[in-house]
Computed example of a mutant assay.
Amino acid sequence: MKAKFGRVWVAAGVCAALGLAVPSAMAAKAGTTKVLEKPEAKAHSRSAAAQPLPSDAIASVNGVAIPKTSLDAMVKASGQPDSPQLRELFKGQLIAQELIKQAALGQRYETRPEVRAALDAAKTVIVTRAYMTEHLDTQPVTDADVKAKYDAVVATLGESEYRASAIAVPDAVTAQTVLDQLKKGSDFAALARQYSQGPNAAQGGRLNWVSFKTPLTAGNTQNWPLPIAEALVKLPAGGVSSEPVQIGDQLWILRVDDKRDTQIPKFEESAPLLRKQLEQVAMEKATAKVIGDLLKNARVQQ
């Protein structure tokens, strides 16, 4: 097979292989622009053409075949519609990658300390993943498990739900400064962006909707700290806490942005997310068991 790619096509592949943007003009010309080649390059092409490609290869670079399976995998991973143009572009990328790899290996880049460190790190990830894949005994999540989780969550919901915002500050002086400015009519969201060290500060301290079953009890507040839940249920819509709420090392100032009757999502809408959560829990339990079994026969010094 005669090599038909020119400098533009290979350059486009090199850019893509290195994660660089391919200029639109270059991409448009890739695979179609005819470029004059040096005489020695033509001689090399004729020499390479003397050896036919294997039936399962799409190209050969200095005698190294690039398998069609590699191209198929790139097309599938891209998520784009399969087309001759897309395959031609990806083939250019694979050729560019092989060219760079051969050049790097020819200059023994694999012996460089930083490259060795990266290879060791990649090897660790690969062998660890392979080991865990074979040894994880993850319990499957059944439809009954998902329904039970849904019922348990619904049982923790109260009659009302709240959409709140919070400003979390590190000391009483800052808390008083914020409260004073709020009393003067300053915008809560702007103060959150300026002072808050809590969640969603950049979004004005806006929190998600939450519902609490009353009377409130510890461990039954949707993983929210009990003092925050107690403050929220006492505030009307638009109300701001008159005193900061102590949460760990922080002081929280709360505002109830909105209040409504609890909106309970249908089971069918909640099931995918609940299943994913349960699968994550099952994976964590299985992982903990594998590690625990390994620790039994290990000597760990710290």
Rank of each mutant, 00 (worst) to 15 (best):
G13E: 01
P52A: 15
V8Y: 01
A50R: 13
G13C: 03
L53I: 01
A27G: 05
A21W: 06
A3L: 13
A17P: 05
V64I: 15
C15T: 01
A21H: 08
A17L: 07
A27W: 06
K68M: 09
A12C: 13
E37H: 14
W9I: 00
K38P: 00
M26T: 06
P39C: 08
S24G: 11
L20F: 14
P23N: 02
K4Q: 12
I66T: 03
E40P: 00
S24H: 10
W9D: 15
V14R: 07
A59K: 02
A11D: 13
K38N: 07
P23W: 05
A48E: 15
A41R: 04
P67R: 05
V64M: 11
K34H: 08
G13F: 06
Q51F: 05
H44D: 09
K68D: 08
G6D: 05
D56P: 00
I66C: 06
A49Y: 02
G31I: 01
A43P: 00
V64E: 14
S55M: 06
P54Q: 10
P54L: 11
G63Q: 07
K68E: 10
S45K: 11
I58T: 02
A12D: 02
S45C: 11
Q51Y: 06
R46I: 06
V64K: 15
A27P: 03
K68N: 09
P54D: 12
G19Y: 02
G31Q: 01
L20R: 12
E40W: 10
G31D: 08
G63R: 09
R46K: 12
G19T: 07
G19I: 09
E40T: 09
C15I: 00
A17I: 05
N62Q: 12
A48Y: 01
A59I: 01
A25H: 04
A59C: 08
K34C: 07
A30R: 02
M26A: 13
L18N: 09
G19W: 11
V14T: 09
E40K: 04
R7H: 14
K34A: 13
P54W: 06
M26P: 00
M26W: 14
A12V: 04
R46N: 11
V10I: 15
G63E: 04
A50I: 01
A27S: 13
L36T: 12
V64R: 11
V10R: 10
G13Q: 03
K29S: 10
H44I: 13
E37F: 04
Q51A: 12
K38H: 13
A11P: 01
R46H: 09
G63W: 09
A57D: 09
G6M: 04
M26C: 10
G6R: 03
L53N: 05
P39F: 04
A12W: 03
A48V: 11
V10M: 11
A16F: 05
S24F: 03
P52R: 11
A50F: 00
I66A: 02
V64T: 12
A28W: 02
L20C: 11
A65V: 05
V22K: 06
A16Y: 02
A3P: 12
L18G: 00
I58R: 02
V8A: 11
L53T: 01
F5D: 09
S60N: 07
K4D: 06
A48P: 00
A59L: 02
P52S: 12
R7F: 10
M26N: 04
P52V: 06
P67H: 00
T32S: 13
T32I: 14
F5E: 13
V14P: 01
K34Q: 13
F5Y: 15
R46D: 13
E40M: 08
G31N: 05
